[in-house]
Design a protein around this nucleic acid. Structure first.
Lengths: 184, 184
DNA sequence: ATTTCTTTTGGACATTTGTCCTTTTCTGCT
DNA sequence: AGCAGAAAAGGACAAATGTCCAAAAGAAAT
């Protein structure tokens, strides 16, 4: 659930140093929004330090957290690849340091660098694996199962998430989360 | 929900004709299994004709259908990219004609052909968009909303799915599906 | 320490969904 | 048409989850 990608980070670190390229470093304060669902963005981010969350804000007022992103995770690439407005919101859970690449440069890189293509394909494949197996799991098992798994992951990754985010990650209400926590 | 990809099909058609490559054409009968969850596979399929379903078989006996795949959709590529056993089952819903590429050839192609990389990146990005927005929607809205959307898509795409598959796509039981169908 | 305000938790009830099993409908056969 | 068996639908109850709101706990100020 707390996704990282060392290959990607290494790749971008190098690019940033070697190249006098279009890449820049930028900071985001905790709680600020990197990408706003529905809005066009023309930048791709790669997290150098810190944690962000990707979440859908549905029209009924509820949120669904897709992933918690950390070192080496790329943001906004789907939007650039498919030329669409932001799929979901991305918010900083901690102070964040990110590499920023203009969409045009990112595309240009993709058109000439097999390494980047490979890294990206592997990352997208991994996300499909995660997202789809979680969707299946959450649909077909009880909340308690899902919660148990979440707590386990949190422990393993030394991550503390507030209850509201836990509920949004599980796609349930706070009330249900509290109930499930009791019964475990 | 019935995913296609004309670019991919065109690309493979050409490759199959031009090249005396490793690509072959193969047929699968309705109801046969192209990929079995958990088993290693060393082939990538591209659907030329027909419809397949990708589904998880969870340990509690329930199924969750990820997608219905048709012309130009690629199968088994995630497994090759990440070098893992099959993530889910893929079954033929109709008789199927597919191109088959050995994993090694597929990788070799990826390492030298930007066009393939681009097509694949676009396809994976699209799948992430679909899978994640559906996960969010299914978690945060009622079954009736989900069913309404499903019926709409079915109509739009001229697709008839049996009730069992509809339920598996929605991640609910047949009983719940019947109830929801009544109340619409 | 006491008060006040805010945040978190949990009770009570309503709604949704699942489970189990009976009833109904359909199909093929005579 | 009538029957037997199979498949699909639905009733009845149980379990899970959501909604709404009151109670409890925590934080800040004096």
């Amino acid at each position: 659930m707390l996704r990282t990608n060392t290959d990607f980070l290494t790749y971008i670190d190098k690019l940033y140093q070697s190249d006098q390229s279009e890449i820049s470093l930028q900071n985001f304060e905790k709680d600020s929004l990197l990408l706003r669902q529905g809005e066009k963005s023309h930048r791709v981010f790669i997290i150098k330090e810190g944690i962000a969350k990707c979440f859908f804000a549905e029209e009924n007022g509820k949120d669904y957290i897709l992933e918690f992103m950390s070192k080496g995770q790329v943001l906004g690439e789907i939007e650039v690849i498919r030329q669409i407005a932001c799929l979901c919101n991305v918010a900083a859970l901690t102070d964040l340091q990110v590499y920023v690449i203009p969409a045009a440069s990112f595309k240009a890189l993709l058109a000439k660098d097999f390494t980047l293509n490979k890294i990206l394909l592997e990352e997208l494949a991994e996300r499909i694996i995660n997202t789809s197996s979680r969707a299946s799991f959450q649909q077909l098992y009880t909340v308690e199962h899902g919660l148990a798994k979440l707590l386990e992951l949190q422990e393993k990754q030394n991550l503390t998430i507030n209850k509201e985010d836990m509920a949004a990650y599980l796609g349930i209400t706070l009330r249900s989360l509290n109930r499930a926590l009791k019964s475990i």
